[in-house]
Design a binder for these strands. Sequence first.
DNA 1: CGTCCGCTTGACTCAGATCAAACTTGGTGG
DNA 2: CCACCAAGTTTGATCTGAGTCAAGCGGACG
Lengths: 215, 215
Amino acid sequence: MTELKGSVYDRNHMSQPPKFSDLLEPLFKGPVRHRDLEVGQHLFAAGDPVESLYFVDSGRVRLVRYGPEGSILCLQTARQGQTLAEASLFEDVYHCDAVAERPSRVKVAPKREILRSLMSDCAVSIRAMAHLTRQIESLHARLEIVAMKSARARLLTYLDWIREPGEDSLVIKDSWKEIATEIGLSHEVVYRTLAVLEDEGLISRKDRTVELLNS
Amino acid sequence: MTELKGSVYDRNHMSQPPKFSDLLEPLFKGPVRHRDLEVGQHLFAAGDPVESLYFVDSGRVRLVRYGPEGSILCLQTARQGQTLAEASLFEDVYHCDAVAERPSRVKVAPKREILRSLMSDCAVSIRAMAHLTRQIESLHARLEIVAMKSARARLLTYLDWIREPGEDSLVIKDSWKEIATEIGLSHEVVYRTLAVLEDEGLISRKDRTVELLNS
DNA sequence: CGTCCGCTTGACTCAGATCAAACTTGGTGG
DNA sequence: CCACCAAGTTTGATCTGAGTCAAGCGGACG
């Protein structure tokens, strides 16, 4: 509970709260293997057997699914200190791909070890459940956003979602282009809508910080 | 594991597989309270404290969230034999409403009892985790559908999703109107798209059964 | 028999996608 | 230090497809 000011994790879209990472981290403390990934490199692909649980030491790894028409949907983004595809722990094979967004290093823990630890300590499994429920809520929020028809509502809801509770200003960590794909809009519309919102005085932008006025 | 041929549950959109219901059902065996709901009646609302876990004995209860512009988003549909809002077990207050879609009867189990059972038996909590992961995958599938821009792709993917693996024909259990809201389309577009797909020979309809040709 | 509601189709509107072009920024290498 | 390239950002013009309003059909149910 120290580095990076913590604000990098909280309420972050598609990312699990930090607490659980800390809880599972002990599982990765023993004789664990590492894997280093270059940008674009796959950690696993849909159809691969699930044999490990991954913990992102550094970098950023995304869970994505490819649509038939070549579209890409991001299901989860695992940043430093987070685990990836926990929901696949009880699957035989993955149903989506994991691809590094940046040069990344991940810890690899055998699935069996993880399951054994969960089995042996109820307190751990309870916290794991709590973690999964948070991911479910995160998905609820994303579903809510993507289900909106208007770009304006999507953007405002998204900004409201990733902002710190109580804070009126937030720092954009990704490019707007990435955000656009994240909320299912073309980047042009995002830029346009941002301009409109700024015109209307609902937000103000400077560099990579956005101020939410009159929530 | 007997009634209704099972097909009512499997791979059903927004519904958890049946196994877990069986697993948790024992928890509802003791001296549990019941609640009867009329159509449209609320079981709980957003902001209410989470004090119980509900199990649908009969009828159908939906987890919904209301958008600012009056839009309604369904997060989960709990049918007979399923539990509702398990993801809220670790929350203090609900973040969505539960409303009966049909006259329903639900069993009510105190949250504390549930947590205690989970805490005392690791096997149960492991299975609970497995259940939650299935819900996550269900949400992934819904996200995938709603994120598609074209009505055609949404509908085809949806039909492919709810069909029995291996089966080419499926029986529509809800009205197309409900399905339309489910996949985020107006019902007119759904009807139109169905007509087009039938024209193109991709599907054929008779009564409430749809045949998928040339998947 | 009349009403309600799911279903179906048509005409029109409009918001977001797409294509296009220019500007900014950052990094790389000569 | 500058030339250059890549990628993000911004704005304009146009197109398309889903939403909306509207109207008619048919079955269920009282």
